[in-house]
Design a protein around this nucleic acid. Structure first.
Lengths: 338, 338
DNA sequence: TTGTACGCGTTATCAG
DNA sequence: CTGATAACGCGTACAA
């Protein structure tokens, strides 16, 4: 920039004014400066600017698993939205659990102007890491118990409830539930939805029907295996996220069972492949775009500071997408269920 | 940092030495400094450090579509690999085509120390944007015609060829090809593989059997529709990426056709869902992990400058994963093909 | 072993 | 409108 100033025979201030349009500059000088910029091949140095302004125009985004379409679809919305507002996004995925705190530290080191975090694992270390962050933080998908930050979450119990209603209306009573980590917000909330829905329908809860799938394909596969080899086999299975739906379908197939002939299946989280194959998987879809849009909006509002201090909370609703993986319970299954 | 120095009654230099371990510091003073850091709640400011050192310890990663498992699986490898080496990654996805140059500018503005780019769209603007980048650049998936940068790519013709061999060995002769954008490196190379394989087998090439799917679900759906309603319907379909495999399967289904009964299908790019449903999709799998590992390695080697100037080129091999979506050609189909 | 002082490239504050 | 000049927070010769 100094070089440009020299080349154009103006002060360093004038160059800055031209580059940033921060002050009116006389036509002649402006042209000279622009020519000099071209000649020198000057490119602005955002680092120096950030040091001065205190803003990096960068947002940190931390998601649990970049391999999960739920998160990537969300990032695919967040990134352009923030970009439109002039922000770049620095993405971290928690390849290994417990990485989260480290990533937060890394991002705050780099002075990001804001954070969008999808909490994973235990609360305590996360709370600790978030303490002392002085930039806006928005939580997505999961939230923390003290509701200190803006958050956008799903009404998980209602979403699961909808799926259960559907299954119950089809006559299913023994419904296996493949759960995520129970110590997470979503893991907990989805099991709750399951239990509540059954209780409301007067169906007794059999704890053998709730098996831990830990959000992952493999664990869910094993959970489904356990469920499907129970003395009283469930007539329907619910997988509490998309990874686990895969594991579930594999287990059904490996047992030589037919879906929906022998067992109905509903997945949580919709994804493009769900309706490409046979059966077309019935799912509870999360409004992924809304997640991204709302999270971006909340954060940008905080960034422009045109908003009250109190943490806000957006609750989104899931949507049941009925396809072909569920079927009314058969007389035979009914008999066996006795 | 100045505050810490004051609190600990030492010079600013000593604090820096303690924080970075850059010079030996007496036990007593070190403890004082550490205590002061705790007390003040000092956190290092990477921006200022970067301004001084000229390194941001940040790598820019640009991929075409973060919604595509191929890219995300790759990012899931790249991000931890670079993180282990102390680098953060700034991720940009080209939501809109032609965004690429802008993203490159954004990243160079922010003084990233290196770039991993998966080129998209036309070459010219990209070449232009990359010109004048003075940090190491590694290209993945696709490369540029002038081979100016390190690149890791697939042997696309061979990979497609393997799939064709398989189809030919099953007796298929009329094989529909659903192609990506023909003006991309991969789009071009995969069609080439198709044509070469057929030519080598003495099968004449029917241009009606090559339909543009543009890498997307919708376009591929329509392409598959065109293919499957041809007077002489192809007995097998090949979709040149995972998105297009979805569109293809949907078209097969919507036409009331059975896969593999009526038509065999092979997809390009493997993904977890491919083997969860019926049919289990036979695919040509790209070694996604290797893509990520090699790209990270090439970049890190350039970063530590322990490597010759000449651009390097890693060529990876695809792997055919035979599952249940292909079947030997039937006599009936054979008759119709005449 | 420790302190001093300068500079990295910008922006912002004051004068002019 | 324009030009000097002082920070921004840190690393690092150089001096002590």
């Amino acid at each position: 920039m100094a070089a440009v100033a020299a080349e154009a025979n103006v002060s360093i201030f004038t160059v800055s004014a031209v580059v940033n349009g921060t002050a009116p500059v006389g036509e002649a000088r402006r042209l000279r400066v622009e020519a000099a910029i071209k000649a020198i091949g000057y490119k602005r140095n955002s680092v120096a600017r950030s040091l001065k302004t205190g803003r990096t125009m960068t947002i940190g985004v931390i998601v649990g698993d970049i391999t999960n379409p739920f998160y990537t679809d969300m990032v695919a919305v967040i990134q352009p939205a923030l970009h439109r507002a002039g922000y770049a996004v620095m993405l971290c995925c928690n390849d290994v659990m417990q990485m989260q705190a480290e990533h937060i530290a890394l991002l705050r080191d780099r002075m990001v102007d804001g954070l969008i975090v999808s909490p994973v694992g235990e609360e305590a270390p996360l709370q600790q890491a978030l303490r002392g962050i002085e930039v806006p933080v928005v939580l997505v998908d999961r939230t923390l118990s003290d509701h200190q930050f803006d958050a956008v979450v799903l009404d998980n119990p209602a979403a699961v409830g909808e799926a259960m209603q559907y299954l119950l209306s089809l006559g299913h009573r023994r419904i296996g539930f493949i759960s995520g980590e129970p110590d997470t917000y979503t893991g907990h909330a989805r099991v709750d939805g399951y239990k509540d829905a059954l209780a409301n329908a007067g169906v007794p809860i059999d704890n053998d029907l709730i098996q831990l799938g830990g959000w992952r394909v493999e664990a869910a596969y094993n959970a489904a295996l356990r469920l499907l080899t129970l003395p009283h086999r469930p007539t329907a299975l619910f997988a509490a996220n998309n990874h686990m739906a895969i594991g579930t379908m594999k287990a059904v197939r490996d047992l030589g069972l037919n879906c929906p002939g022998d067992v109905s299946v509903i997945g949580f989280d919709d994804f493009p492949w769900a309706e490409a194959f046979t059966p077309q998987l019935t799912t509870v879809a999360q409004p992924v775009r809304s997640f991204g849009e709302e999270a971006s909006r909340l954060l940008l509002e905080r960034l422009t500071a045109k908003v009250a201090k109190a943490p806000r909370r957006i609750v989104l609703r899931g949507e049941l997408r009925v396809r072909t993986s569920c079927r009314p319970i058969t007389a035979a299954a009914l008999a066996q269920a006795r």
